[in-house]
Design a binder for these strands. Sequence first.
DNA 1: ATGAAAGCGCTAACAC
DNA 2: GTGTTAGCGCTTTCAT
Lengths: 372, 372
Amino acid sequence: MSERTTSAVADKPTPTMRDVAQLAGVSVTSVSNYLSDYPYMKQTTRERIRQAIEMLGYVTDERARSLRSGRTGLISLAIPSLTQIYFAELAERVIAAARRRGYGVTVESTAFSRRHELESVAAMARKMSDGLILSPLLMERRDIARLAGDYPLVVLGECLFDVPAPHILVHNIDAVKALTQHLLDAGCRRIALIGGALDRRRTSTETLRTQGYLEALAQADVPVDAKLIRPIPAWETDEEAKDDASGGAGYVGRGIATRRNGSEIVRRMFEEGIKADALLCYNDLLAFGALRQLREMGVRIPDDLRVVSMDNLEEAQYTIPSLTSVELGKEQIAQCAVDAILEQVAGGGRGAAEQRYVDFSIHYRESSPAVA
Amino acid sequence: MSERTTSAVADKPTPTMRDVAQLAGVSVTSVSNYLSDYPYMKQTTRERIRQAIEMLGYVTDERARSLRSGRTGLISLAIPSLTQIYFAELAERVIAAARRRGYGVTVESTAFSRRHELESVAAMARKMSDGLILSPLLMERRDIARLAGDYPLVVLGECLFDVPAPHILVHNIDAVKALTQHLLDAGCRRIALIGGALDRRRTSTETLRTQGYLEALAQADVPVDAKLIRPIPAWETDEEAKDDASGGAGYVGRGIATRRNGSEIVRRMFEEGIKADALLCYNDLLAFGALRQLREMGVRIPDDLRVVSMDNLEEAQYTIPSLTSVELGKEQIAQCAVDAILEQVAGGGRGAAEQRYVDFSIHYRESSPAVA
DNA sequence: ATGAAAGCGCTAACAC
DNA sequence: GTGTTAGCGCTTTCAT
C-alpha cells in the first residue's frame, strides 16, 4: 500500500542488533551486553562492536526492548489541564525530574473530566508506560477500587484518600493557617475566603484550606462570618465539566478556579455589601481575577484590603500589586513523584500506601507585606 | 530481589491473547481479528471471544502490538517550555487533538536548549513514538540535516526554514503589520517595538515581526527610529540557556521573552529618555511585564500610551488594563500538526516539505481599543 | 470464516 | 568472555 519515496538505491532498512553482531563478527548477546555496559568483555570485542554500531548508525528499538524487558522508559502524568498554570508549572518540573532519570513523560490532560481521569488509569493496563502520576480532581471514593493493580502509581493531592499507593500531599491546612495568622497579625479581622467551601460532604483541597482558615480564626478567637466564605460558582462556564457531571451519578458540581471566577466572586461579594479587610484566595488564579476586580472598583491594596493566596505562580510576581502567595513545593512534589514511581519500577510493583508531605513557605509581596 | 505483596493466592499473570483464545476455544488469530473489527466472522465466534475477553479482563499489551505493527499510538511534542504559557496552551490543544484521533502525546520540554532540541530529534530513531511535532527555538541551519529521516515530522514556527517536512507557520509579518496599522490608525507615530530584533543574520520570529513593523511604517511614510526597537536583553537570567550557548559554536545569544524582560526593557527605555506613544510587544509575556512597569511609572494606558501584543493568552483578558493581542491560531496549529503527523503515519513515511499557514485575528481590549 | 506458523528486535537464562 | 536458545505478546501472510 505504501510506496516509500526514498533514494533510488535499494531501501536499506534500519539496522538491527543482528546486523551489528554480524558486522562485528560477534553474537547478538555480546552486542546486547555491550549496550548494557556488561563489564566482563574483552576490550577488542568491545571496540569492534562500537565500530559496527557507529558504521551502521545503529540505535536500539525501544519498542522491542520494552516488550522484552517490561520497561518502556515512559511515565504517564495525568493532570486536569495544562492551561491551569499551576499544572503546567508542575508538569514542567515532572518532565525535568524524569529526564534526569532517563525517563520520558506522557502528559494526559484529563480536561476536568472524571471520565478522562478514569481513562488514564485504565490506560495503564495497556502497558505503554511504566507508571502513573495521577492528580485526580473529580474522581470519587467509589473509583478508588479502580486504582488497584500492581503497576507503579503515585497519587497527588487531596481529591482522594486511602489510595493503595504512595500519596503526595501538601500541608494545606497548616499553610492556610499560617497565611490566616499572617493576616491576623497584620490586624485584619474580616478575612474573606475566596474559593472557600463549607460543604463537608467530601474532602477536597477547598475544604481542607477552609478548615485551616477556620482553625486559625478559632485559635485567635475571631468570630467566623459565613458570609465571608465565598465558594467558586459551580459550572460557571465549563462545558466539558458539565458533560462530566451529567455522566457521574450523584455528582455534586464544583466550580473551577479561574481568573474570571475570582473577579466574579469579588464583584458579587461587594454587591451584597459585605465588607472585608482581607482576601485569602484559594489559589493564585482566583487571586489574579480578584486583584483585577478590586482594581476596577478602586480598592487600594494593601491599604484598604490585603490579598494573599496560594500556589506562588511565576505570574504572582508581576500582578499589580504583586501577590503574597504560598509556595506549596511544586519542585519537591515533582521530584518526589518521579522518585516514587522509579522506586516502584525497581521494586517490581505497587508501593506501600504511605503519605509523603512536602514543605511550604510564604512568599511575601506587595499585596500583603510581612508584618514586623 | 522483589517480593511482590499480592494476595495469598498464586500470582495470576495478566491474561494474554492466548489465554483469551484458549478460553473462547478459538485461535489467537481470531481474537486478533475480533479486536481489529474484522468483518468476516461468525456472530457466535464473535460473541464467545467477547465473553472470554470480559471474563479475563483482557487488555491489549500495546508494547507487543507496537513491536509487531510498527505503531506506538504516541506522538512526541517538543517545545521550549511549559512554563512559557503560550506553549502550555498549545500543548493542551495538541493533546486534545491527538486524543480525538486516539493518540497519546509525549511532551518533551527542550528547556531553551539546542542540545535538548537535537535530542528530541535523535530520540525518534528509538521508535517510541510515531512522529514528532517539533517547535525549535535554538536549532540552526546546519542542524537541518539531522531532521532527515522517514519518520513523520512536523515543524512549527520560524526558527528553521527549508526543513524536509511539513511546516506550520503563522502570518507573523502580516499580523504585526495589521497591528502596527491599527496603532497608526489610532494616531500613534512613535511606536516602540518591545522585543524587536534588527539583527538579520538569521530569520527568527523576532526578525519577522520586526519586518512587519518596518513594512507598516514604510507604507505609512512614518520614519523609523532605531531607538524605538528594543531587543530582549541576552541571557538576562537563564542559566540553562547560557550552558547551551557555550556548547554551540558561533551561537549568538538571544534573550527569552519573560515578564521580567518586558519590565526591564521598558524601564531602560524610559531611563534613556526615549518617548513613545505606543508599545508593540513581541508577545504577551513581554507585554505583561511592560504593563506592570508602566503602571509603576504612572503611565496611563491607553491615554498616554497604547500597548498591543501577540499570542492572545488567556491572561491577556485579566491584566490591568486588559491587553489587545493577536490570536495566531493555536487551536488550528495544534489540529493541523496532529493531522499532518497522522497523514504521514498513514502514508508510511515523511511528508512533503510544504508550508501551511494558519489564520490570525486581532482581539481588541482596553490597552488599545479598536478605532472607528 | 478460521487457524498455523513465522517472526517484529530485543533480553535473559544458561551453556560452553 | 561469548554464543545458543527461547521466548516477550502480538500481527500478518498464507493455507484451508
